[in-house]
Structure formats: structure tokens, C-alpha cells
Design a protein around this nucleic acid. Structure first.
Lengths: 219, 219
DNA sequence: GTATATTGTTAGAACTATCTAACAAAATTG
DNA sequence: CAATTTTGTTAGATAGTTCTAACAATATAC
């Protein structure tokens, strides 16, 4: 069974993996906020446990078991976030830190019960998919708002970043998941966009913000 | 801040403390399921942190800060047990192991929210008192069923032991907290007692069981 | 295509929580 | 009260997770 530390490395590896499924030691060190020698010794441990493939001076690659282990931790994290928001009344900006701890609890019944109580949600409060019990993730490919064209009607579906500051920014503009936005215009100079809401006035959103908003086009 | 291990030692110390507040190294070693040298080195660490007083060859004594730290962990444990039973539908025999892990979560808001959602409960599902936010425990002195006399009417209020096996035994006899029992007779040979329920037939309870049932006399 | 910068590795140390073996103090018992 | 048992301590080792310093390999740049 993976230790808490190992679970955290697996999660980071899973999130950092590129198309080839490769992760560099330095990337991982930065993500985990530890030194490279620490990562070096930890990847050797993770390899012994069969969770990844490591060869000197090569990027590491998660094995199928490693991916599954990681996805199951992510499942616990996202179920917890959803439970905190839907059943305990927390805001989407408050749940990450708590879920970061609860994801390491070893109690299948606890997470299954959460799942049942919520009617088997497929996404977390930030729109990220919740892996199933076998660690399978249903990938959905949204567009970033930046990629959309003037005149399109879109629904805010997920985020590419869920930092507290960004979530608080979205709260201040009442930008919730499910919100419908119409793209009024795009400024070619700085890529900022003007969007209007169904009910009230329009907003100008910077490129940085538009890159972080994932949407479904509905018209 | 106490590590998970330190929190577990503090909890055990709190539970083992006698009237004088003293705990022997060997007792603690047995309770924690570790060797005496391990306890010896840990009590030195706990002393450095100001949670107990230790002198060579003397029993250890928790300080006020140590007691508070312990009580706050116990608070998190008991709030969690109550939440699992009242809000998540678990049986009282299923919650100990899960709470044993969740008690180490550092997220005041999480436990405060549980507390609010349940309307500030004063006892856990096994009748044990929940310490308040300052670590104060409201002690209630119940009698064991063994101490009661024939003819008395009592309410089952708490347990002196909450092992899964005992809780499952109580489930099988529908002996829940709040149940009213009338003491029909006590067998002087083996101290077993015959009790009757308000609604249905009577039961014979062994001395072992009677010692573990805490009651309030109501008539 | 060598020089430099970046990335990765090894060696050795520290800290936490644990152990066993050996020894010492305190408590119990005849 | 001396002998024995129980309890507690010290020393030294191990495993996990981290570090810094020094060095080595790979990648980048002129």
C-alpha cells in the first residue's frame, strides 16, 4: 500500500505526464517542492513498488498500476471536494486543502458512501472528472474560452486552474460552472474578451482568465 | 503541531491517566502496541514539546497543554463518529476505524461544520462526551448496569467498551442508547441479570455485558 | 563542435519512529 | 532483607523521507 508521500508523488506524476506519459525529475521536484536528489531516491522506491519505469538520466513513466493507484487517489480527492461543497456547504474555493488531506484516508466504505449520497457525480466542483472505482477517467475535451469565436454562446464547464485566488476572482464576477456566456467581442491587441450573461451586464475577461475557463459551445 | 504519532500517544495518555493523572511506561507501551524503549524515547519528545512531565523511572503526567491537545483530538474523533452515524448512515460499529484516521485531519472549519450540521452534539454514538472547542470535557457519572438493583427502571446511556464485537452483540439484541430497561432479577451465582424491555420480551445479560452498559436510573 | 548551462546522480547526513539486546532500578515475594 | 520479577533505560540498528555538497551526463548556444 502506498504511503501518503508515495500517493502524493503518484498524483503529481499523473498530472505532469505528457502525451508520451513522460515526466522529468526536475519537473517533479518543482511540483513536489522537494530537491532533485529527494525525487531521485523516491522514484527508485516507486519503481520497486511497480508504479513506474525508471532508467538513469531518462524521464520516468508511470506503469498501468501506477496510473490506477494515482487515479484512485484523485478519485478520493474529487469525491471529497464534491461532498464538501454539495453536502457540507463549503465554497469551491475552500475545499482543496481539506481534500488534500482526506484523500489519504484508507476507508473504501467512507468514499463509497459519499459517492452514493451524491448520486455518483462525474465531475468535482471545478468541473474535473472523477475517476471511477477502477481508476478509469472519462476524458472530456472542452475548449478554453480563448479558443472561441465572437458570437458563440458557451456554457462554463470546467477550469484549467483552481487556485484559491482564481476561484475568488470568479466568485466576485458570479462566474459559476453552468453559467451561459455570449461572446460579444475579442480584442486582438491583448486577447481580452467581452462576454455577456443571460441576465445581467457584460464583463471584460483578460487572456489569462480566458485561458483558464473551459467551455462547451452551445450555439 | 503534534504529528499523527504524537497525537496518538497523547490520546492514549489521556485515556490511561488515573486519578493522580499518572501513566506508566509499560501501560502506554501496551496501549500503543510498541516496545518500552519506543515509548521511552517518545515521552522525551513529548516532554520537549511541553505536553507532559517526565522523570526517569517515574510515571509520566500530562501537562494542561498536553491534556488540551489530547482532548481536541478526541473531540475530532467523536464529532467524526457522530457525523458518520447521523449524517452518513453508518452503524455505530463501523465508525471507529474511520474516525481513527479522520481525527488527524488539520482543518478546523471541517470539524466546526460537522458540529454545526449536527446542532452541537454533546456525546458520540457510544455515549462518550464530546470535548468542547477549548478541550473541556463535561463528565457525567453513570452507573454500570451491574451496580443497579432489581426493580429499577434505567435508560441505556453509554458504554465502557466500544469494540466492534460488543457493538454487534448489542445490535443483535436491539440494545440501543436511549433504550429503557427494567431490572427483573439478578443471579447471585454469576451476577447475570434479567432485564425486560418496554415493548417486548426480556433478555438475560451476563456480568461481562452488564459491566459494559452505563445507565441512568429513572425509576 | 567545444564551452556553458541545465539536468540528474551519488554520497553522506539528519530526523522521526520504530526495533532488539543488554543492563539497571524498583517492586514484589518468600 | 535478599532473591527474583517487573519495569524502565541506554546503546545501537533500521526504514522512510528529506537535505546539501560534489560530481557526472545531457542539452543548448555560440
Amino acid at each position: 500500500m502506498a504511503s501518503q508521500t508515495e500517493e502524493n508523488y503518484l498524483k503529481s506524476l499523473f498530472n505532469l505526464a505528457n502525451e508520451a506519459g513522460e515526466v522529468n525529475i526536475s519537473e517533479l521536484a518543482q511540483q513536489m517542492q522537494v530537491s532533485m536528489p529527494t525525487v531521485n531516491s523516491m522514484v527508485k522506491t516507486l519503481q520497486k513498488n511497480g508504479w513506474l519505469i525508471y532508467e538513469k538520466y531518462k524521464p520516468v513513466i508511470l506503469t498501468q498500476e501506477g496510473k490506477k493507484e494515482a487515479a484512485l487517489v484523485i478519485r478520493k480527492h474529487r469525491l471529497t471536494e464534491m461532498f464538501l461543497v454539495n453536502k457540507m456547504g463549503f465554497g469551491w474555493e475552500e475545499v482543496h486543502e481539506i481534500a488534500e488531506q482526506i484523500e489519504h484516508i484508507h476507508a473504501p466504505k467512507f468514499f463509497e458512501r459519499m459517492d452514493e449520497m451524491m448520486g455518483h457525480p462525474t465531475v468535482d466542483p471545478h468541473g474535473s472528472p472523477i475517476p471511477d472505482k477502477l481508476g478509469r477517467i472519462q476524458e472530456v475535451n472542452y475548449l478554453t474560452l480563448s479558443q472561441c469565436k465572437t458570437g458563440q454562446l458557451v456554457v462554463l464547464a470546467a477550469l484549467t486552474n483552481s487556485s484559491t485566488e482564481f476561484l475568488e476572482f470568479l466568485n466576485s464576477r458570479e462566474l459559476n460552472l453552468g453559467k451561459e456566456l455570449k461572446i460579444q467581442s475579442k480584442e486582438s491587441y491583448d486577447q481580452s474578451m467581452v462576454v455577456s450573461f443571460k441576465d445581467h451586464a457584460s464583463e471584460t475577461l483578460s487572456e489569462k482568465v480566458c485561458d483558464r475557463l473551459l467551455v462547451r459551445v452551445i450555439g
